[in-house]
Design a binder for these strands. Structure first.
Lengths: 207, 207
DNA sequence: GTCTATAAGGAGATAGAC
DNA sequence: GTCTATCTCCTTATAGAC
């Protein structure tokens, strides 16, 4: 095996470890949130020491930033794979369904909605902001398309729809249902989707 | 003035200071969240020293617990004052509207939805849990009543409606609209109510 | 690149004077 | 009951050996 091959292998191992770290950060972040997540937690979960962790990510902020970036990238990928779905409304439903499933399986909600300081921290991360804007642009386009098609209420400003849409991906009702109801994940997803699109009010059959 | 009178007066002053502390805690909690709120922050906002603060509340957990209890009590009071509204659905709308207004004016969202550890901390607070259960019982009754009247979708489990209803009181979309849209508070409330009850989908006029 | 050990600073809580 | 000064622990981050 050549030196280059070996270097490349090392790089691969490096990437793998980095991914393991991001996985651990995702888990810890999901359960404790940013403020209570410690670098010890993450290092412990991966099975490495704290200084090693700092060799990969030079600060807690950077680690969390990269974790969120990977998450957003996952969403962008997912959106790109939705080509076969015809309508904008259908795509929006599918994306929300996907986000809810990710969360129910222990993932993170899209939004660091949790607290203003965390949000501000992320907003200082240029790379993160760029990805968010990319995803945001695509979703906004879908919202406007669906409004034009009459599948989403066109009397609502698209901001309202878009922000509320994000909010549904991190709806705390999901946690409560998972914890206090006997409902399975499938039902939770089904009901959350229904409530997001139709609200609490009795929906009339469209035809 | 008798000794008893003086004591009573002192008690009154004590209560007043305690309320000032709770006000400060509410403000700080609203802006920074539980984890980042320090006892120094609260003491500084009230204009007293930290040891004095600890004379009133023996720990950070207790302080936050009492703050949340006062909040829930406010909601219960508000609900009691809704006698003149006829329908259950009308009451639910009015309560959500009230909660959103409180938040927009710098108050706290009902739910410590933010993070699991905070939620668990509060759930260990017996007094808090009792108040929450009281409010919860009243709201659940309203939901079921509205479902029976056909004003809320009766095919939804009442859990789903109730948890989602709570979630709307702390919907992060409110923050985003307040920060990034040029919308006034009135419009924000209007749209959030509409989205909560009707969802994103075009709502057909009922008659 | 990985570890052990530690620096530096922050935050909850308290001792003790007034 | 209020304050100044302090204790103690925890967390981010790094120095330095291997």
């Amino acid at each position: 095996m050549s030196i280059f091959g070996k270097l490349s292998f090392k790089d691969q191992a490096f990437k793998l470890r980095e991914n393991a770290i991001l996985d651990a950060a995702t888990t810890v972040l999901g359960s404790k949130g940013y403020d209570l997540m410690t670098m010890d937690d993450v290092a412990g979960a991966v099975g490495i020491s704290k200084p090693s962790l700092y060799k990969h990510f030079k600060s807690k902020e950077e680690l969390v930033g990269e974790t969120m970036i990977r998450l957003i990238d996952g969403a962008i990928d997912q959106l790109a794979q939705l080509g076969e779905i015809a309508t904008a409304r259908g795509k929006l439903e599918a994306m929300l369904e996907w986000a809810l499933r990710v969360r129910l399986e222990g993932g993170l909600p899209f939004l660091p909605s949790t607290s203003t300081p965390v949000r501000e921290m992320l907003m200082r991360n240029v790379k993160y902001v760029m990805r968010v804007l990319k995803l945001n642009g695509q979703l906004e386009k879908l919202v406007k398309e669906a409004q034009k098609a009459g599948d989403i209420d066109a009397t609502l400003p698209s901001d309202v729809v878009l922000y509320s849409y994000y909010a549904r991906t991190c709806d705390p009702a999901v946690d409560y249902l998972q914890k206090f109801s006997k409902m399975g994940n499938e039902d939770i997803v089904k009901y959350m989707l229904h409530v997001a699109f139709n609200g609490f009010t009795t929906s009339l059959p469209l035809h």
